[in-house]
Design a protein around this nucleic acid. Sequence first.
DNA 1: TTGAAAGCGCTAACAA
DNA 2: TTGTTAGCGCTTTCAA
Lengths: 347, 347
Amino acid sequence: MAQVGEESSTGWRDKTVTIEDVAKEANVSVATVSRALRDLPNVAPATRAKVQAVAKELSYVADPTAARLAAGRTGTVAVAVPVLDAWYFAKIVAGVEAVLKEANVDLLLYAVTSERERELFLAGRGAWWRRSDGLIMVDVELGEENAVRLAESGARIVTVGSSTPSFSSILLDEVAATKEAVEHLVAAGHTRIGVLSGESNALKFRVPSLRLGAVRDLKQRLGLDEDPELEQEGGFSVEGGRDALGTLLDLPEPPTAVFALSDEMAVGAVDCLRRRGLKAPDDMAIIGFDDNDMAELFGLTTMRQDVERVGATAARLVLASLAVPNHLPAPVERMTTDITMVVRETS
Amino acid sequence: MAQVGEESSTGWRDKTVTIEDVAKEANVSVATVSRALRDLPNVAPATRAKVQAVAKELSYVADPTAARLAAGRTGTVAVAVPVLDAWYFAKIVAGVEAVLKEANVDLLLYAVTSERERELFLAGRGAWWRRSDGLIMVDVELGEENAVRLAESGARIVTVGSSTPSFSSILLDEVAATKEAVEHLVAAGHTRIGVLSGESNALKFRVPSLRLGAVRDLKQRLGLDEDPELEQEGGFSVEGGRDALGTLLDLPEPPTAVFALSDEMAVGAVDCLRRRGLKAPDDMAIIGFDDNDMAELFGLTTMRQDVERVGATAARLVLASLAVPNHLPAPVERMTTDITMVVRETS
DNA sequence: TTGAAAGCGCTAACAA
DNA sequence: TTGTTAGCGCTTTCAA
């Protein structure tokens, strides 16, 4: 330990101003400092003012780790998403972050990209349940047993894109939206409708299968062409969508319209068309899902979801559940957000 | 996996399992458990095995907060970015996350979007310096004084997109890339070159001004048109780029080529052209910056940077600095990553 | 209204 | 090799 000057030696730990420093400087006990700074009752106004002044002067900020250890609260919420660099998830995280910041709560981010990681995560990797007061799982399936187990252990969780009986959840109305999209195409006279779907990785997203299921249902009910070849995997990427549409176009009897389960794939499809000298909607109607940044540029008809708001709502739900005393059960709220169709040029 | 319905006193669903529970169950002291589980030396192989087995059986995971309090390490790295829902930053964060996960380090995410937030953040909001072992600041200016202060207090920081004498940094070679882009346009015979630049918010990005400065330099050196009207702010967004190009086109003497400081703006420009029935590069050459997802779709000539890798490198740098004992100064490494031109159709 | 003191769960000297 | 014990910085009874 090299001594340099009077104060510093090994690093920030030595210089850190603690609650004790504040107490000493303000001539009160640490307990009083603690109370005063957290706006708890039973502190004389004058004392509180004094303590606050001293704290400010010393740039004192309570150590959240120590607080967590003593009080059990971390002031942190964890967020788990399947991928970070996709429009949809980035938007969700942005929505969550904005609300948490407002509440002065920090955000611990986990990318849970594979089934294996999901298991590790739920088994405790990262110890998120100790590091955070609550968790938002976005399109990462929790599973009923996990949900029950975690609920019993007192966890505060909000799921987005899936739901369990134990925790609050936000579902997008996939089924209704999918119906609206398909019906839109049917109304335009299409009966042979392709679908661009597909897993992007090993993780079982719930969302794609929901949408796909809805399409199948509807096809059957409306007596549309149910040829399985009409369903192609596009992996939720532009390239995937491009390739998938290529496959559809090369079919002996190609569809006359295509519903892409994401805008990325829809855009890839539009590009594919363009490369072949074709055009939407004349040669093929295309409808996407999300209304992301590219949708407007491509004149894409799509199902718009207010993703950022979903993130914000999820954050509010966790915060609300955190406000409930720990010995009481967390409230379970089930929300469904609408999805509206934005008709542009590709349909 | 622990069995349901057995041993209710130790299952972690009822109460959190502590190191003491493990110690008791394994008939050793907590110190031994601690050593055994952290792969520290001086533990008999048999003891270690036993402890590990017990820990696994009880699903014990050490509480990171308690560990931090005792040892000063949090196992967490904080990342600060100006915005979350932009391609560039999402990629960076993804790159960081991947490396941190590998090292079993958690990621605390902060969006520092305004000058005010930057100040709050550096002043301690979120107490990131207590919650995390290190910090990666992406395009959030640290400032020399802050850098010095933080370095003295022993902080481990890596900056991306800016640099200070105190900490490791990763710079993209903005100047060289900008030159290459402009020279590319000049080589094609352009002398009146527009620039799409611009702040998206109150935060002083360093990057835009660097690029803009380089363009100005070069214009002067090459004797190109330096008309200030040729510089338009596009706010790094598609819409901004569209509008900015509109302004340029409406100039009495519009430029014949445009360099957009981001692909988003470049794409907006291409769209603007298209709406007016014009086309790149015939009516106007366009070159962007980033090579993001949209670039290829739009046939955009652009300067490609491997953003994800930058994130990964930043993460490795913090991890490396964390590996250095606290009483030693953290190593300062200064890296510059290349940017390469991708020539497509718009130039 | 305030303070003293017992932890929270863990790590790290130091002893044994 | 292992155990004992003193904290880490805070919150929270319980007394004063």
